[in-house]
C-alpha cells in the first residue's frame, strides 16, 4: 500500500518520496514498477542478485514475457535495461522534484513582498 497523501493543504498531490514498498509486505513488482515509472525522483532498484541500482527509471515495458525497465544511473549514464524478473524491490529514495510547491512558494513570496511594501506606507499615514 502506498503512503497517504501529505497533509499539507498547499500540496494536493501525494508523494511517494521515502517509501519502501517492502515495509508494507511482499512486493508486487509490476505495481511498484508502475509507481516508479510515474515518480520523477531517483529510485533504488534492489535486484534479485542483491545489488542496489540508483537512478531515474524513465521507461518500462510491461507487456510480453520480456518485460523490462530502463533507467539512467545517478550520474546520468545509460540507458540501462533491466528485466522485471531481476527486480526484487524499488525504493523511492530520491527527492521528489514534482512535489509541487514552486507556485505556492511564489505566491507566498509575493504576498510577503506586498506586505513589506504596505508596511512603510501604513506607517507614513500615522
Amino acid at each position: 500500500m502506498s503512503p497517504e497523501p501529505e497533509s499539507q493543504s498547499e500540496d494536493p498531490s501525494p508523494s511517494l518520496e521515502g517509501w519502501d514498498p517492502a515495509d508494507d509486505g511482499p512486493v508486487d513488482v509490476p505495481d511498484v514498477v508502475e509507481k516508479a515509472f510515474a515518480y520523477r525522483g531517483n529510485v533504488s532498484i534492489d535486484t534479485t542478485g542483491g545489488r542496489a541500482l540508483v537512478g531515474y527509471l524513465f521507461n518500462r515495458n510491461a507487456s510480453g514475457s520480456r518485460a523490462f525497465v530502463q533507467y539512467l544511473d545517478d550520474k546520468g549514464d545509460g540507458p540501462f535495461t533491466l528485466p522485471y524478473a531481476s527486480i526484487a524491490n524499488i525504493r523511492f529514495t530520491g527527492n521528489d522534484p514534482a512535489k509541487g510547491n514552486s507556485y505556492v512558494d511564489y505566491q507566498r513570496r509575493k504576498a510577503q513582498n506586498l506586505s513589506a511594501l504596505d508596511a512603510p506606507a501604513e506607517a507614513s499615514h500615522e
Binding site: 520523477r40 525522483g41 531517483n42 537512478g55 531515474y56 524513465f58 539512467l72 544511473d73 545517478d74 550520474k75 546520468g76 530520491g94 527527492n95 522534484p97 514534482a98 514552486s102 507556485y103 511564489y106
Partner: peptide
C-alpha cells in the same frame, strides 16, 4: 524558470544536466 502550469522539468539533477 519553473512555471506554475508546466510539468516538463521535474526531474533529478543528473537528468536536468543532460
Amino acid at each position: 524558470l519553473a512555471c506554475a502550469g508546466c510539468g516538463k522539468i521535474q526531474y533529478p539533477v543528473q537528468v536536468l544536466r543532460k
